[in-house]
């Protein structure tokens, strides 16, 4: 198969899996409804895998496709701006940290999760014109780190096996 066709197929598959994960997460009850914003971030597994298999460019496209299609299919338009802020900030940080080679996929994923939360809290502060709600970040740092460790482990393993399957190495 031509290299570009292979890549297109793979990216489409990753996008489909990310969408399914987003959907599953949106229909599951929130992990802890008493404090909003606590999530597993399952779709980030796929973004992480994409960042490792391809480059930040493909990961960004995948991320944007996931956000817009999931907003269209099962979300509301309101949440798009929050998702975008979180996703772009998180991906930027993950791409930079991956490049430095300081951390494994787990460290990269943890940073991504924390900055995803930070992006969303910053947008909420801006939209609501209220700085007080920044205190959510204390709680979201703890839960985001935990979620980031788990998605990082899964994403790291997936990258390893997918790389073997795709490139034979």
């Amino acid at each position: 198969m031509k290299q570009s066709t292979k890549k297109l197929v793979l990216l489409s598959l990753l996008a489909a899996v990310a969408l399914v994960l987003s959907y599953i997460e949106s229909v599951l009850p929130p992990l802890y409804p008493a404090i909003p914003g606590i999530k597993m971030g399952l779709a980030n597994i796929i973004i992480l895998v994409c960042l490792y298999i391809f480059t930040v460019k493909e990961a960004l496209i995948l991320s944007l496709v996931r956000i817009f299609v999931s907003a269209l299919l099962f979300g509301n338009a309101m949440s798009v701006i929050y998702s975008l802020a979180g996703a772009i900030l998180s991906l930027a940080v993950m791409a930079i940290l991956k490049k430095t080679n300081w951390f494994s996929a787990v460290g990269v994923s943890v940073s991504g999760a924390v900055f995803h939360n930070l992006g969303q809290v910053l947008i909420a502060i801006a939209v609501l014109e209220n700085i007080q709600i920044g205190y959510y970040m204390i709680i979201l740092c703890a839960t985001g780190t935990t979620a980031g460790i788990l998605t990082g482990i899964v994403g790291g393993l997936l990258t390893k096996y997918l790389n073997k399957a795709i490139k034979g190495r």
Binding site: V106, V110, S111, I138, A142, T145
Partner: peptide
């Protein structure tokens, strides 16, 4: 790989310590 995992652990520990300090100050 060992070095990377050690760095991961340091990163997570730093986030944990900073979070706990902020939480103690804020909620205190």
């Amino acid at each position: 790989m060992k070095r990377l995992i050690r760095n991961d652990a340091i990163l997570i520990a730093v986030i944990a310590v900073v979070t706990v300090v902020f939480a103690l100050v804020y909620f205190g």
